[in-house]
Write a protein that binds this DNA or RNA. Sequence first.
DNA 1: CGAAGATACGGAGGCACCCTCCGTTTAACA
DNA 2: TGTTAAACGGAGGGTGCCTCCGTATCTTCG
Lengths: 212, 212
Amino acid sequence: MDDHTDQSRKPRADAVRNRERVLEAAKLVFNAGGSEASLEAVAKRAGVGIGTLYRHFPTREDLFEAVYRREVEQLSELAEQLKNAKDPVDALRRWLRSGVEFVATKKGMVAALALAVQSGSELQTFSFERLTKAIGSLLDRAAAAGAMRADISPEDLLRAFFGMCYMHDQPGWQSSVLRMLDVFVDGLRVQPAGKIKTRAASSAKPAAKRKR
Amino acid sequence: MDDHTDQSRKPRADAVRNRERVLEAAKLVFNAGGSEASLEAVAKRAGVGIGTLYRHFPTREDLFEAVYRREVEQLSELAEQLKNAKDPVDALRRWLRSGVEFVATKKGMVAALALAVQSGSELQTFSFERLTKAIGSLLDRAAAAGAMRADISPEDLLRAFFGMCYMHDQPGWQSSVLRMLDVFVDGLRVQPAGKIKTRAASSAKPAAKRKR
DNA sequence: CGAAGATACGGAGGCACCCTCCGTTTAACA
DNA sequence: TGTTAAACGGAGGGTGCCTCCGTATCTTCG
C-alpha cells in the first residue's frame, strides 16, 4: 500500500545504461527498414542478453513505443503549430505530408504505429492516442470552418493513412502516397451525401460517432 | 528438348486429390481470419504431410494465389460488367465497395493480395496483374469521360485500397473503410493541381507514368 | 570499507514455425 | 505383374519468441 513512488533507491547504473543501449540499437535496426527484425538481433547489437531486452521492454510494442516516442511527439507538436495556419484544410494536408516524410526516414515507424493501431482495444498505446488527438484537432478545426465534411473520425483518417504507408519499401511508394493523400484531402472538402448523384445514399451507415 | 507438353502420362490420382485437399483446408483456415496461420496447421488439417504441401505450393504466396484465384476473377469480371454503367465514377465506387465486401467475407484475402502487391518487383502474381487491369479499365474510362483526374495509376489505387483494408479485424473497420472510400472517390472527381488554392503546386512530383 | 540485500544480468531451454531433403510408398503404364 | 517415375511425408536443421532462474553487480548502511 505504501506508495513511495519516488526514490526509495537510486536506479542501478547498469540498468539505465543497458536500457539506453537497447534503445539505440533498436533505433538503428528498425530504421534500417527491418521493422520486423528479430529482437534477438537487437539485443546482440546492443551487446546485452535477450533477457535484459525483455525485462526493459516486455513487448515488441513497448520497444517500438519507446523508440518512436520522440517522433510521435514531434508530429504532435507540428499539429499544434498548424492550428494557427490560415487554411485549415491545407494545414491538414501539410500535416499528412510531414507524416509521409517521417515514415520515409524512419522505416520502422509505420510498422510500429500500425501495430499500435491494431493492438487496438483499449490498450494504452500512448502514440496512438497522441496522434489521434493531433489529427482530431486539425479535423475539428477544418470541419468547424465548414471547409470539410464532419463525419470522418481521426481514427478513420489515421487508419487510412497508415494503410497507405504500409506499402512503403515499394519502388515509388512515396510519391504514390503523396498523390493519394492529395486525392484524399480533396475528397474531404466535398460535403458527404446527397448532392452527388451516386444513387441513393452514398453510405450505408449514417456516420461514425466522433470521439473528441 | 522434346517438348511433349501434353500428357506423356496421366497425372497421378493421389497428387490431384491431395492438391485439392490442401486447397480446401487452406481456404477454411485462411478465411477464418488467420491469414497468418501456420502452413503446418493447413497441412495437418488437410491430412497430408508438410512436404506434400510445399511440393504443390512452394511458396505461401503460391497457396494464397491458388486459394483466392476464383475470387480475384470474380472481381475482375465485375469490373468488366461495370464498364457498361452510365456513370463511370459511380462504377468505380461500386467496384471498390464490392472489394470491401469480398474482404469482409474472406478475411485472408487482404493479406494474400497485400503480399502479392508487396512481393512486387516483376514477379508474376497473376492476381495483382488481373486486378490492376480491372481497376485500370475503370479508371481509364472515367478519366476519358473527363469525370476524374487522370494521373492516378491503378497501382496507386490498389495500394491505397489494400492499405485501408489492412486494418480489418478492427471493431468498425468495414464502415470506416466504406466512408474512406467515398471520400477517396470524391477526391478523384476533383481535377489535380492549380484550381484549388492550396498554395503552389499540390504535388511535388509531376505525376506517375500510367502503365496501361 | 565491507557486508547484506536488492536488483539486474544473460543465456539455456521449451515451443512454434519455416523449409529442405531423401528414404519409402504408390500409381501409371506395358 | 513388374518396372519405374512421381509423389508422399516427416525428420531435421535453422530461426525467432519468450520465460525462468542461478549468478553477478550495484546500492546502501553500519
